[in-house]
Amino acid sequence: MSEIQVKNLHKSYGDIEALKDISFEVDKSEIFGVIGPDGAGKTSLFRILTSLLLPDSGSVMLAGLDVVKDYDKIRKIIGYMPGRFSLYQDLSVEENLNFYATVFGSSIEENYDLIRDIYVQIEPFKKRLAGKLSGGMKQKLALSCALIHRPEVLVLDEPTTGVDAVSRVEFWDLLHKIKLEGITIIVSTPYMDEAARCDRVALIQKGEIMSISKPEAIHKGFTRILYELSPGHGAYRLLKNIRNEEWCANAWLFGQSVHLTLDTNKEETEFLEYAKREKLSSKKITAGIEDTFMELMRKA
């Protein structure tokens, strides 16, 4: 049986539908990524998972427990890291950790082996106030606090937002170690590149799940022709120009370059003629997660 089962979940705030018929399952000790832009419904979903919000309809089972009925039991077995690091800014690193440990009926010593890898990195600063830590440090402390009672399910809402690139990589390394302890992890992120570090990924947009697959399989759903155009500079002007062309199915900015999708071979030849005329450097590429996501968004 799956560790997390979400069935036909609906949630709306007034007229706004935050979640529309969400269903998915997560296996035990799996890292399940929920990826989508801001406002896609990630936080609402996670708050329902952690029993902080009531769904309008549908059901969520965590480790065989219903999040609405058995909320008090659920709260003993989950570790939760909200979008904003919920640390007490005026308490030191050690005091924060101690507090969360006692609140969850545990102690630092009891589960030290679980958090050791993370905690050794922040231990030199254990007397420092949490408010004075860097973003990466805060994130590691918040993760330690969420893990201190050895939860069965770890729910992380955008843990890497506002954290530097090096810390992000380290953080994902840590998640993979935690996973080995048999802990199920569900994590959301707005960063497409982090999808590759998950075991499975759900792409979510406007409250709907558009696809669930292994990260390496995501772009298999991408069946169109994809070109990368490198104009050197003036990428935005180029984007505007080619969007007016008839053969252009979809185009978007990708860093300094422009990605372009084409539906048919006929369109491809038309584009190649255009590229020759305009002396555009272009190359055919295979789709990444972000490309797939942009395509899915267009369909939705």
Binding site: L52, R75, Y80, R84, F85, F104
Partner: peptide
């Protein structure tokens, strides 16, 4: 306001 209430609620308190 600080968001710490969210974690307190999720705790067994």
């Amino acid at each position: 306001e600080m968001g710490t209430m969210e974690v307190l609620l999720v705790s067994p308190l």
